[in-house]
Design a protein around this nucleic acid. Structure first.
Length: 337
DNA sequence: CTACAAACACTGCAAACGAC
DNA sequence: GTCGTTTGCAGTGTTTGTAG
């Protein structure tokens, strides 16, 4: 095989992995362990691994990612001797999992397999992603969720992992707008390519709340002490509040607050990289409702000149529009305080 | 390290029941 | 009757134990 990204360290160096906006909202069903395998891959993938392939289009330059059993044992919180049992079934299924790509035209659909190859041999797991999904994996256009992988792995329920991803997306933003039921169905991976519910159980809202929302909130609150869920004083519901049309539940709002914001906890602002600035630029320009610290905004402003000169970016940098948005965001910060 | 199987936990579904 | 809640059951996924 061609371009193997070796696990040159026995640990994943960052505390976080990035999940692109496209991935978060794509149609993809995974079991809890499959989520962890996928997270392992996302924690290791870097845009630069794909430079050769992108330049010459040669499939031999599509990277594979290797993980040794020390790392795997830590990642899956199981003794090395159990790795085979832990990984076999989930990997076997994962090799045929495909992702539904959102299409412009209604009635069209497209699926692509996530991985082209998954091998476990001599205690080494090798993941070869589908080269057609690079942009989805590295998040070419939109923002991303910055997810603390330790807590993500600690969550046992699939729904917890999904909710945690969403809450991480708004980590520096205290209050998230209420979601409609349809939006929630999408977030929890319950919709097919036509936007219909895949599982008819969840047409009944109560089942959805009882089997998905409540357990997810409960588990996250137990595992991550950095997040605090609040009790809805009217109903006593823990961590969420209904929005209703008449007496029918039409959506809900998660009631939570992060004790630390991602921008503060990832690294101090003097350690921001150029890549962080690009991500911040994309987030702000796509109009996603995030609350930034003043340091963050200042840093992104400082890098805008460099971004304009960067020929590798796959989008046009509009410095004027960006600066005016940042000025507005900065004035909001001072109003709030 | 690999293989399989039993025990256990979770998910999806349906049906019964209660509040309005 | 409609919508929300609770409960039981069967199928699937995960964990743990045993053996080669």
């Amino acid at each position: 095989m061609g371009n193997i990204i070796k696990s040159n360290t026995k640990i994943i160096s960052s505390n976080f992995f990035k999940k692109s906006h496209e991935l978060v909202f794509s149609q993809l069903s995974l079991t809890p362990i499959q989520h962890d395998i996928f997270a392992l891959f996302l924690a290791r993938i870097e845009k630069e691994n794909w430079d050769n392939y992108k330049n010459n289009g040669n499939l031999k330059d599509v990277p594979s990612y290797e993980f040794n059993n020390d790392l795997l044992s830590d990642w899956f919180q199981t003794a090395k001797i159990n790795l085979y049992s832990t990984l076999k079934k989930p990997c076997q299924m994962l090799a045929s999992v495909s992702i539904g790509i959102p299409m412009e035209k209604k009635g069209d659909f497209q699926y692509r397999p996530l991985f082209s190859d998954i091998t476990y041999k001599g205690g080494v797991l090798t993941l070869t992603p589908n080269y057609k999904l690079v942009d989805v994996f590295v998040g070419a256009s939109n923002g991303y969720s910055l997810i603390s992988h330790k807590e993500f792995r600690d969550l046992n329920l699939e729904s917890s992992k999904r909710l945690y991803t969403i809450l991480s997306r708004w980590r520096s933003f205290g209050r998230l707008h209420p979601f409609s039921l349809t939006e929630l169905h999408g977030i929890f991976g319950l919709l097919d390519e036509r936007g219909k519910l895949k599982k008819k159980t969840y047409e009944i809202t109560a089942n959805f709340i009882l089997r998905i929302i409540k357990p997810a909130i409960k588990e996250i609150s137990e595992r991550d002490k950095n997040i605090e869920f609040l009790i809805d004083s009217q109903t006593g519901n823990f961590g969420f509040k209904y929005t209703k049309e008449g007496r029918k539940i039409s959506g809900l709002e998660f009631l939570f607050s992060w004790r630390t914001s991602a921008t503060k906890s990832v690294k101090p602002s003097n350690e921001f990289t150029y890549f962080d600035a690009v991500s911040i630029y994309k987030d702000i320009m796509s109009g996603i409702d995030i609350e930034y610290t003043e340091d963050t905004l200042n840093y992104a402003l400082k890098m805008i000149g460099e971004m304009m000169l960067d020929k590798n970016l796959d989008f046009e940098v509009d410095a004027g529009a960006f600066i005016s948005k940042v000025v507005t965001l900065k004035s909001n910060i001072t109003i709030d305080q």
